[in-house]
Amino acid sequence: MKYMVMECHPSYAILLDKEGRFLIAANLRYEVGQEVTNPVLMKKPSSSGFRLKRVLISSAAAIAACLLLLFGMNYYESYMAPYSSIFLTINPEVRMDLNRNGSVVGLAGTNDDGETLIEGYEWKGKDKVTIADELVDRAIEMGFLSEGGRVSFSIDTPDEAIFQEYGVELRSKVTEHLDGRITVEIEIFDYSNSSESSKEEQPEKVSSSPSSLPEKSSAVTSDKTSSQIVSSYSGGKGESDFKPTAGSISDHTPSSSKPSGSNTDYSDSDYGENSSMASSQPPASSKPVSDNTNYNDGNTNYNQENQNENETDDTDYSSEEQEDQESDYEEKESDEDE
């Protein structure tokens, strides 16, 4: 492109290009009126105001993105991420995933029959109780569930309050739903407990709270007892019966976290025979204790805790046990000393 030199200054020249632009360029010994090619044009650096604006805009965008991510995470946490699960077991087993708010975010069959049961079932936007009711209906339709059958809800949740809430709700609503049609047993389990009772104890849990082990075994027994009691109630008597049932739920749940609390609950609960049953099963509770000698090494509190428990339960039994354990303990210590 050809440029016409319009004006010459000592430090710069003004050129006019063919498109009508007036430009400032280096004055490479130009003369006014000359036509030149390949001038060195002045580049105008972007003004600082524009830069500042750009920086502001980009930082605002970055902050917005961060906030979006944060709230997105929050939203995901409270609405999308499964927080607790309910395992509905008849023979088909189905898992319901619930978020923090108690809405159902996922439904999956955990065995073949379970998959058959939920095949073609539209669960989205429905309440967990509605889903449970409808699944039980489907199970009846498909012939999985008949008169005198058993429906168990195994609730897996990190929060005890939620466990109780869901347990009570499911039991009452499903019983109400089935009332007058067929009679089935309805059981509520804490998933973590039931899995522990069926599977081997996880080593981490054992190491963290060795003292709770004997309680776990008793919790298992209480599970059994509660389900037995439940079976007597669940024949569709009346709604007033559900109160003590809820109590039975609270009975065995704290066992994993609050060992001493469970004992007091036992004595407080209405079931006189229940506590007697628990106390009348020393062989069951003694079995894990005898296994337990391994855990003595690191924990001196063990004896004390045991003492507490034994005081409430059975003094004779406890003294025996305690002596055994103490002697074990001493032996261990002497071993270690050597």
């Binding site: 430090s11 004055n27 490479l28 060195v40 650096p45 600082s48």
Partner: peptide, 25 residues
């Protein structure tokens, strides 16, 4: 002066520096 193009270019660069300068630079 008046012979080297480089000097003219340095001058126009000085112009650019004047236009583009800000205290924070």
């Amino acid at each position: 002066e008046g012979h080297d193009d480089e000097l003219s270019i340095a001058m126009i660069a000085f112009h650019e520096a004047i236009c583009g300068y800000a205290r924070n630079r």
